[in-house]
């Protein structure tokens, strides 16, 4: 399979959030605004690409018995790098994502791709998979965040998009709104799939 084809798979057909339903915690927690969603998405994408690349490089020298701990060490190292770099250069974003940056370590998408893809394929393909899955994750985060930010704050990426007479329904950016928005979005995806 070609690089591009592998890359595009994660975007729609095997979208990590909506199709494989992985990585729910950040999907719900950081989607209060589009900017947070993009920040989280790109941080996770970076970790995903790097860990996929390294894991596919070391797959032949890692004994299968200790492969999971080794993967965890690789992933945790990249997460810590992202954590420190973000704290130094984008402190505001780092602060609003808070706890969820170190928690990228236990994001099932990353360990899942390491185990299911990178440990069986070559470096180029693993990087393609990392980019595809990462962007797919970013895309779904932004989608959820777009709905929540417009309904809940009347803005998109901080710009006002609704008429001034619209009184934002705060509930959408509070915790209950996160669950309900994602629930309806998933139902919508299912409906579109059935129609096809």
């Amino acid at each position: 399979m070609s690089f591009i084809k592998q890359l595009s798979r994660g975007l729609i057909k095997e979208n990590p959030t909506f199709v494989i339903v992985l990585g729910m915690c950040p999907t719900l927690a950081v989607t209060t605004s589009v900017i947070n969603a993009l920040g989280m998405g790109f941080a996770a994408t970076f970790v995903l690409i790097c860990s996929n690349a390294i894991i596919s490089l070391i797959k032949d020298i890692t004994p299968s018995k200790i492969r999971i701990p080794v993967y965890v060490v690789v992933i945790a190292a990249f997460v810590s790098v992202v954590d420190m770099v973000m704290a130094a250069y984008v402190p505001a974003l780092h602060k609003s994502l808070g706890l969820f940056i170190p928690l990228i370590v236990v994001n099932c998408i990353i360990l899942g791709r390491a185990e299911a893809f990178a440990s069986k394929n070559n470096v180029i393909m693993s990087i393609a998979d990392g980019i595809g899955m990462g962007l797919g994750f970013t895309l779904s985060l932004s989608l959820v965040a777009t709905v929540r930010e417009i309904i809940g704050a009347g803005t998109w990426l901080g710009m006002r998009v609704t008429p001034l007479t619209y009184d934002p329904a705060l509930i959408a950016i509070l915790a209950p709104g996160a669950f309900i928005t994602l629930g309806f979005l998933m139902a919508l995806m299912n409906m579109l799939k059935e129609k096809k």
Binding site: I61, T62, P63, P69, V70, V73, V74, A77, V81
Partner: peptide, 14 residues
């Protein structure tokens, strides 16, 4: 030992 080596490398980078 292998696991240990990975940890050492990771620590060094961090």
């Amino acid at each position: 030992l292998i696991l240990f080596i990975f940890c050492v490398v990771a620590t060094g980078i961090l």
